[in-house]
């Protein structure tokens, strides 16, 4: 389902070239559950963003369901993300001036759903993550763990086949982090492909396989 062929990424920084990812060849099947580990600056987030169509590679190609992501226009990639990919961020990235319900409605609004459908589906998703009593709360009125649960509900709004998570437990206490990982297990059990960047060994162990990156190179691609 997800495939990287000879992907590399380098940046120009003050007249010198920094290589973030070099010659990455990775394949992930539908329903796979992959954790990406490695030291800071090893290119984990770069790899994840490239899989999500958010960052163009300097070389190589990225395929999702056989379609070359970076041969699409930026707007076509956005449309593809909307239908197929859900992102979970370390800092949750909730829109601060919207309520929990409205934050979960965003993907549905972008998909062109009518308001009643948006509200109905967003309410059910927040019920699923145990926040049905926090529908009208803004992010600043929620605990960190609750904010992450709103973000998880938002990920599921458009029922994506692929969930990409960038250090989803990085800002959480161990107990809340464990619940979040439980949730990822559920998502994988439902048949979704889950790819998770993490520094947490316990979280990494829950995945079916692990990719290790060191200085931009995938050291262990098969887990």
């Amino acid at each position: 389902m997800l495939r990287m062929e000879g992907v590399c990424k380098s940046y120009n920084h003050r007249a010198s070239t920094v290589t973030a990812l070099r010659d990455a060849n990775v394949t992930m099947d539908r329903g796979d559950y992959v954790s990406i580990v490695g030291p800071s600056g090893s290119g984990k987030s770069t790899l994840l963003l490239m899989l999500g169509g958010m960052l163009s590679p300097t070389g190589g190609r990225v395929f999702v369901d056989g379609r070359s992501l970076y041969d699409m226009t930026p707007n076509a990639r956005a449309a593809f993300r909307k239908e197929n990919i859900g992102f979970v961020f370390q800092t949750f990235n909730l829109v601060p001036y919207l309520t929990s319900l409205e934050n979960v409605q965003i993907p549905l609004f972008l998909a062109g759903e009518d308001e009643a459908t948006q509200q109905d589906r967003a309410t059910r998703l927040l019920e699923r993550v145990g926040l049905d009593d926090r529908l009208d709360h803004k992010p600043s009125e929620l605990s960190v763990g609750q904010q992450q649960r709103v973000a998880l509900a938002r990920v599921l709004a458009n029922d994506p086949a692929v969930v990409l998570a960038d250090e989803p437990t990085g800002n959480l206490d161990p107990e809340t982090g464990r619940r979040v990982i439980d949730f990822f297990d559920e998502l994988n059990d439902e048949g979704r492909t889950v790819v998770m960047v993490t520094h947490d060994p316990r979280a990494a162990e829950r995945a079916k396989r692990t990719l290790r990156l060191v200085e931009g190179s995938v050291i262990n691609g098969q887990g």
Binding site: N75, A79, V95, P96
Partner: peptide, 13 residues
């Protein structure tokens, strides 16, 4: 960050 989030969620230009 907010704009980036919207784009990540599928917002076009």
């Amino acid at each position: 960050r907010e704009i980036g989030t919207l784009m990540a969620l599928g917002a076009g230009s």
